[in-house]
Nucleic acid binder design. Structure first.
Lengths: 131, 131
DNA sequence: ATCAATTGCGTTATGCTATAACGTGTGCGA
DNA sequence: TCGCACACGTTATAGCATAACGCAATTGAT
């Protein structure tokens, strides 16, 4: 998945997420971008869809929010399964990848002949500071 | 978490989920129970909250739906981490538990001094029949 | 027995999340 | 230059979830 040149809206949404400390809901992003001409949710959702497709943004299913991918390198290759810890206190999200879990899940899904398309692993709790 | 006697509403919601082939949204449950006197979403959500607390119902975060726990035994002890495969074709949900994944996640979260409260693992794709 | 606390219930209203459906403009290759 | 793909803007609507109020039943300590 090569990363093409981003459009204006995509760039605005990406910047908003990148400069945010933690995850943001689509509507929070919308509010942040009103000064830049954003008026409707669809403008945000359409940009988010593309950014997810490019692997630059992740959706956190358990909190209906979006976060910039923390991988420093480009997004030209698949990262495999992505997992997150999400702190209920400060909202901090940590992204991580683990080959062992990926292998194990692969084994288990293969055993039931299940064809995986998207894997969600989200761990909610409290980080060191907020424990 | 001992399972107390269920209230009327809790029983109705539990029965609806148990007799369903797959997961149901709160509003779908509401519609199914209108004949039994249900009028408002809160009646469903309140019952669902308790049933989740008792470990009899799981929430599928990635599709905003609820499913009856498939464990045959009672719910008096914690099952640890619960994972699901969710078929995008037929909606079939399979629940499973894996000690290896649980261990690995525990190791990883411990490494960042993260205190886990709830773990979500949901695998979306296609089951054998729908592949 | 009585009071207070707890729990469940019902209702209305509201808020948050996401998409449908329509039309416009722009770039680009056949 | 025609047709197609894509991004965009707008309005409206659908879908998911909770706030806030009040009432009724239960329980359990005084």
């Amino acid at each position: 998945m090569a990363t093409p040149q981003l459009t204006k809206n995509q760039t605005l949404v990406m910047d908003a997420l990148s400069h945010s400390e933690g995850p943001m809901s689509a509507y929070t992003i919308l509010d942040k971008l009103r000064d830049h001409g954003f008026r409707a949710p669809l403008q945000v959702y359409r940009a988010l869809d593309k950014l997810q497709e490019y692997g630059m943004v992740h959706r956190l299913e358990s909190i209906n929010a979006f976060v910039a991918c923390s991988c420093p390198h480009d997004h030209e290759h698949d990262h495999g399964v992505t997992a997150f810890t999400i702190c209920e206190g400060c909202g901090q999200v940590t992204e991580f990848h683990d080959e062992a879990i990926e292998q194990r899940l692969s084994t288990l899904t293969r055993a039931q002949n299940f064809k995986t398309e998207k894997t969600t692993i989200e761990i909610r709790g409290h980080c060191q500071s907020c424990a």
